[in-house]
Amino acid sequence: MGVWIVLDTKFVALLLLIASFALFYAYMKLAQGGMKIKVRTFPAVAAIPEAIGRAAEMGKPVYYSTGLGQLTLNNQLNGPQTLAGISILGYTTRLCAKSGVKITYFTPIADSLPLVEETMRNAYLAEGKPEEFDPTTAINFQNEQSPYLTASLGWIQREKPASSILLGGFYYESVCIAEAGNIIGAMQIGGTANTHQLPFLVATCDYTLIMEELYAASAEISGNPDVLGSLKGEDLLKFLVLALLGIGFLLALIGNTSLIGLLRL
């Protein structure tokens, strides 16, 4: 049996991972113990109730999608984004159920359907209206990216939703769906952690969740102190990275490469 631990950059990554989990855990415990955590307001999250209220006033439905997500939950880059999008779908569906607004969720991810259906069903249940949930109107699946885009575009102009919410692992469909929403004058909230689609969502949506904001949004929505504690831990990690950048930058200016050597091991 070989040596388990090899001192290389991967080992530094492992240390960072362990330190992150320790920080998240510690701050979650501190928050549970009464530490006040204040999270910056995300305009995109604050706009969700407004988007549903708009739909209720206009008597129009809401379009919701978590994007292509590489067609499966089992994708390390997109799976977590789809999950984050589904978290916010639960909150949005609950608001819709409360105000009697119809919501339709479009997805090409077949293996997410049990999770989506349960999340939406629970949202209706939480509002005491389980009988109003109908999967044949609330969930719309299309196999593959282009058919999902075609069906989304068609539905958007036929049903003219008052609001369109695009949160998840998007690919080229993002700009098309968001522009289709703009054409009919829908209020649009977008968000993704796929850098290649961010410019389009920022350009076309009224509000955008950028990168980690997508993951943090559900924590903010939950309002649970312990969940918010993990965001504080995340910020401390950011300070750690900022410190590494600052110190490394100054050392580089004087020709010292010891920090780089430490990170590379």
Partner: peptide, 20 residues
């Protein structure tokens, strides 16, 4: 994005995320 994923993954694995 990576930091957000770490925090989200941690919350999901310990059952603190509503989406899962």
């Amino acid at each position: 994005g990576a930091l957000g994923l770490l925090a989200y993954g941690f919350r999901a694995l310990i059952g603190k995320e509503k989406g899962f």
